[in-house]
Amino acid sequence: MNLSKDLVAASATPLVLSILAEGDSYGYAIIKRAADLSGGVMQWTDGMLYPILHRLESQGLIASEVRIADTGRKRKYYRLNETGSAVIETYQTQWRTVYATLNKLWETKLCLA
């Protein structure tokens, strides 16, 4: 199954924020986590994640810091802050509303059939 481009784009922000709610992380690991959780369905072109992360950072939802990884390479870690956590709640309400609305329709249809 392939998700439509629009849906992937719309869900990227809540997905990234929610993954960061599990703990600080960096780009590569965020992509792996999203792929694992969705069984490989939620996949961006890898490079596209970084502009999203930078936008969230400039919006003040996440903060970044450079740490040195075990491999000795520099790695930019992102951390969710309080504003970001609050935004996740807004997203939850929105996505649950969409899901519930569609579900009501689909369940009724099933009953009628």
């Binding site: 072109t45 890898d46 490079g47 596209m48 970084y50 502009p51 930078h54 936008r55 400039s58």
Partner: peptide, 16 residues
Amino acid sequence: RRIGNPDSICQEFAKI
């Protein structure tokens, strides 16, 4: 290739 086409990546970064 997984990271993506340089043109489209750079376009996204241009917005940021």
